[in-house]
């Protein structure tokens, strides 16, 4: 049952990605931008301009460019989409797939940790607020909601850098993933904490965590807002539900009743987590730039500013594929949690 659903959804996802690839390829070329001028500069000779244009393949008709992008035509030097390649970056000359593979783990590490922190804090706080309306957690949530939700990540990032690095001195500066003096471990997965552990270096692991402290705090701080709110609302609704009233009437202990309410509240929250994931990717762009982490968000911005079409296409496709995978995982998890959901 679930297996068939997963296969069908993967099939649909492939179609979605194919349509997206076509759309991105052509939309990007509709932009009133001149990447060639960008590369050769304003003072280039017409000959240099034409040479650069030919070099980028932009002198050929659009259909031919598209065929090359797909890997159906071209010189065969660069694998196309059908061969699993994403083209070559016009800026660096390196394959986009390799660059994405290098930058992506940084972003996933940041988002993963922020998510973990936001859920570990948000779910208990939200549930506590619902169980004890008007209590400390509930009031704190209200005050927090007024601040956290009202400011974007970069505001909080700057505030945290000021307080924890400049003021208290307990956090490292926004200089990257490790101290500039530290020799990084071999890049195996690309995620610094994981690589440190794989290299058997707990000291590096702790240092990596220390450097991730402020970025994760920034992202989780903003993300906890909607999570707390959602858990608070859903738990509140579940506590007012007929089945909770009935559980109380049947004399079930208070902790069992609370667990029932949380269980009923959590399943519908799964859908929102998927939405939050997209939201977090946007937040990650800002946080990565602020803390010089060198993740996919930073790569995307750099590519856009440089009109690096192959890189932009690659980033869009990879992020979409990840989003689709996350939605699929959440749908399957929701179905396993809630017997009413049939896939």
């Amino acid at each position: 049952m679930i297996g068939r659903f997963v296969v069908r959804r993967i099939g649909v996802a492939i179609v979605q990605l194919a349509v997206l690839a076509v759309a991105v390829f052509f939309l990007i070329r509709l932009l009133p931008a001149d990447p060639v001028a960008r590369f050769v500069g304003l003072n280039a000779t017409p000959e240099a301009y034409a040479a650069a244009k030919a070099n980028l393949g932009l002198d050929r008709p659009l259909t031919e460019q598209f065929a090359a992008f797909l890997g159906l035509a071209g010189d065969g030097r660069v694998p196309g989409l059908l061969q699993g390649g994403l083209g070559v970056s016009w800026v660096s000359g390196a394959p986009v797939a390799a660059e994405v593979a290098a930058y992506l783990p940084v972003t996933l590490e940041l988002i993963g940790l922020a998510f973990l922190v936001a859920i570990l804090v948000g779910v208990p706080v939200g549930a506590w607020g619902a169980l004890k309306p008007g209590g400390a957690a509930d009031k704190g949530t209200l005050v927090y909601g007024l601040f956290a939700g009202s400011q974007p990540e970069f505001t909080w990032g700057i505030v945290f850098i000021f307080v924890f690095f400049v003021g208290l001195g307990i956090a490292p500066g926004p200089l990257g993933r490790l101290s500039p003096l530290t020799e990084p471990p071999d890049a195996i997965t690309g995620a610094m904490t994981v690589d440190a552990l794989l290299a058997g270096r707990p000291d590096l692991f702790l240092e990596a965590l220390h450097y991730l402290m402020l970025p994760v705090l920034t992202l989780a701080f903003v993300l906890s807002g909607p999570i707390i709110k959602m858990v608070r609302e859903n738990t509140g609704a579940a506590l007012l539900s007929e089945h909770v009233l009935y559980a109380r009437a049947a004399g079930l202990p208070a902790r069992v009743v609370a667990r029932d309410a949380l269980r009923a509240a959590f399943a519908p929250s799964m859908t929102l987590i998927g939405v939050l994931f997209g939201f977090m990717l946007g937040g990650a762009v800002l946080v990565e730039s602020m803390f010089s982490l060198g993740g996919l968000g930073q790569y995307a911005i750099r590519s856009i500013l440089a009109f690096d079409y192959p890189a932009i296409q690659g980033v869009v496709l990879v992020i979409s594929a990840i989003s689709l995978a996350v939605y699929l995982i959440l749908d399957v998890a929701h179905a396993m949690l809630d017997p009413r959901v049939t896939l």
């Binding site: 539900s241 007929e242 089945h243 009233l245 009935y246 559980a247 109380r248 009437a249 049947a250 004399g251 079930l252 202990p253 208070a254 029932d260 269980r263 009923a264 399943a267 949690l337 809630d338 017997p339 009413r340």
Partner: peptide
Amino acid sequence: PEEAARAVRGRDIGLIVQNPRAALHPMLD
């Protein structure tokens, strides 16, 4: 006290409600 009252409910006095499907937890058999 709440704990003693809770023990009375269900043991000494049982309840059957109007909307039985809503009274059952949707995610437990």
